[in-house]
Simulated scan of single mutants.
Amino acid sequence: MDKMIEENEKAMCILKNEGEKTLKDLAKMLGITTEGARFQLLKLSNEGYVKSESRAMGRGRPQQFWSLTKKGHDKFPNRHSELTLRLINKIKKEYGEDALSQIIASTAEDNLNHYRKTIEETDTLEEKVRKLAELREREGYMASFKKTDDGDFMLIENHCPICDAASLCQKFCSSELDIFQTVLGPGAQIKRTKHILTGDRRCAYLIQESDTLKG
């Protein structure tokens, strides 16, 4: 039974990190048979954690693609969600939007100082992005980075542990983007290309060397 629970968790982690998968692909990534993967997915589907969608792929039978439901995404940690939302609403009601903005700015400053201690000691942009991804991974964002064919970098975050708070107050997201730009320095340009709050399954950031540095 414990092994089955562990395999189910692996399947959900793959769908969280990699996005939708066919039964065959998921079975291969889990290292089990397609029948074994089908059994797990049907169990997770009955519990409301995953869903499937049939999609025509040229000639032949349509393929089923499996992905997480909202309940499945919610299975991953969201930092003290209920308490955080209550505190945000309380601050807005009792002290106003300006007070909330000041608190977010103060928290952002603390995060910036924490990141600087690790990132500013590095020399290259790639090293900075790598360190940033490691910091975000430790904070629960399921983060990673990769180098593109153009020599740019993508910072990818497959989970947002403050998603509920950010949904209520998007200044959390804008402050994060400002922090990234500051710690990566003037030699980098960063742009958010995917955003969980707009319906994407993950947040992604394109990071490029600035034109002045290239020149």
Results as ranks from 00 to 15, higher is better:
200 D>K: 01
136 R>F: 14
111 N>D: 14
193 T>W: 01
187 G>Y: 03
146 K>F: 03
94 E>F: 13
153 F>Y: 14
205 Y>D: 03
56 A>M: 12
149 D>M: 05
214 K>I: 11
161 P>F: 06
68 L>M: 07
77 P>R: 10
186 P>I: 14
180 F>L: 11
70 K>N: 15
3 K>A: 12
56 A>E: 14
178 D>P: 01
66 W>P: 09
75 K>C: 12
96 G>P: 04
22 T>H: 05
103 I>H: 01
107 T>P: 00
62 P>D: 09
39 F>C: 00
121 E>P: 04
208 Q>M: 05
199 G>I: 09
27 A>N: 09
93 K>G: 14
94 E>V: 15
135 L>P: 02
106 S>K: 11
63 Q>C: 12
154 M>N: 01
5 I>V: 06
14 I>Y: 05
124 T>E: 10
106 S>E: 13
70 K>D: 15
86 R>A: 12
181 Q>H: 08
142 M>E: 04
176 E>V: 06
145 F>N: 04
149 D>F: 06
32 I>E: 05
10 K>F: 00
136 R>G: 12
86 R>N: 14
186 P>N: 13
186 P>L: 07
81 S>V: 13
169 C>N: 13
120 E>P: 03
67 S>W: 09
116 R>I: 12
97 E>T: 14
96 G>S: 06
161 P>W: 08
47 E>M: 03
105 A>G: 04
114 H>W: 14
209 E>Y: 08
37 A>K: 03
65 F>P: 13
115 Y>N: 15
125 L>E: 15
5 I>T: 03
67 S>K: 15
129 V>K: 15
36 G>V: 07
111 N>H: 11
189 Q>Y: 06
159 H>S: 05
120 E>C: 12
102 Q>M: 08
58 G>W: 08
187 G>R: 09
86 R>Y: 11
48 G>W: 05
109 E>D: 09
172 F>P: 02
49 Y>H: 01
154 M>G: 00
104 I>N: 02
81 S>K: 15
138 R>G: 03
191 K>P: 02
88 I>G: 03
